[in-house]
Design a protein around this nucleic acid. Structure first.
Lengths: 218, 218
DNA sequence: CACAGCGGGGACCAAATAGTCCAGGAAAAG
DNA sequence: CTTTTCCTGGACTATTTGGTCCCCGCTGTG
């Protein structure tokens, strides 16, 4: 009867700069810790200590641990996609793919193959445990693969790749090789298997390159 | 001074049939539960309940959770290797590889891609957490890859594969594609990415098959 | 049948860990 | 400057979970 609220005001909470910074600090700490120890093996107390915050802040910014983890999935996904956009957005040639491969290998070799892929390891840990996290990770993988397949499409359009190349499948295969490579490298504490895996995938893509000159073999 | 024991009697515990059966029951339950929920997300109470045993039995047969997990790594590794030996021991042709691929895909499609590889998911969860488990998993992966590379060696020796094929690298690439495929299939709850990944790896191996007739292209 | 030692049930304990609360301080709005 | 709302510190609670203990039963052996 009284003043009904039209177009619900959403109870918009004011948010201060300091609050944003704290939230960011928590996420950043969770990101680091859960990268090296895994999600389930990291406690909120670890995060609290590493982020120099207190319990109440954790629960002020995140409803519970699950929410923190989900926020981390989003956070890490954004990081990876941003990084990958840099390396793949202008991909137009096979040598660009090789450079991309080298960058990933070099980054992973800095920790001797340890820890694996920030996205892949979360996918393994969370897929059977948090449906929402799984679906976010799935989307992120899709976006990542799309960065690759878009590049491959450009290569096909420019004639570098043959018409019978399937950019989507090639991208999926490359992503699988990358993730499998991360996994084996992590188990071996050695980046070598990841190199072999990526090289296999690149070799496979190479087999779809147009003949530089001369008529096709068949 | 007194009666020093020569050649320590090892305090050999008698072990009854019933004891063996209980231990097996525990391992089998842990295997099932940790396969679907993950290792860290499975509690000892879950295992106790699922195996119809009691706390004291768990600790009678395993020193602590870590030991149980390590025993599971061994147990599961033995299962996988046994299964794979069946499919790979007589591998002599490319079509054999295809059959092997189909069997894996079909098995995984029964759960819509969920849960991933029993070995791979443990590798992700444990590699950064239990050095001993990691090294056992590493050995198991090596043995698994060797089953593959042995088959490829046979194919090369028989002339099916060209001399410039590198069985070890091909096996590593195939294993990475498999593991990456499992991972993506798990995230997607769909076996399709695993198929694409395995097909890529098989296609790559195919490119090393000897020309059935006619002279080599180059 | 008696005895030794393994196997088992389940209560109990202790530590770790998630989650709550409230008072006080900082920052934005009026 | 005053008021309101947000942000923070940190003590406190509840629950989960790994791990211990004790006592009894079973089983095989002499």
């Amino acid at each position: 009867m009284g003043d009904e609220q039209v177009a619900a005001p959403t109870k918009q909470r004011r948010i201060s700069q300091r609050g944003i910074a704290t939230r960011e600090r928590i996420l950043e700490a969770a990101n680091r810790l859960m990268f090296v120890r895994g999600v389930n093996a990291t406690t909120l107390d670890d995060v609290r200590e590493a982020s120099q915050t207190s319990k109440s802040q954790l629960y002020h910014h995140f409803a519970d641990k699950q929410e923190l983890v989900r926020a981390l999935v989003k956070y890490r996904g954004a990081l990876v996609l941003q990084r990958e956009r840099g390396g793949l957005e202008r991909l137009r040639s096979f040598s660009g793919l090789v450079r991309w491969r080298n960058a990933l290998v070099q980054a992973n070799s800095l920790n001797n193959g340890k820890y694996g892929c920030g996205l892949g390891s979360m996918a393994v840990e969370l897929s059977d445990q948090d449906e929402q996290a799984r679906s976010m990770l799935l989307e992120t993988f899709a976006a990542w693969e799309k960065l690759i397949s878009d590049g491959l499409h450009r290569m096909r359009d420019s004639g570098a790749l043959r018409q019978d190349a399937d950019p989507e499948k090639l991208a999926t295969g490359l992503m699988a090789a990358l993730q499998g490579g991360y996994l084996l490298a992590n188990a071996a504490h050695n980046v070598a298997p990841m190199e072999v895996a990526l090289d296999m995938a690149l070799e496979h893509i190479k087999s779809f390159l147009s003949e530089p000159s001369g008529e096709p073999t068949r």
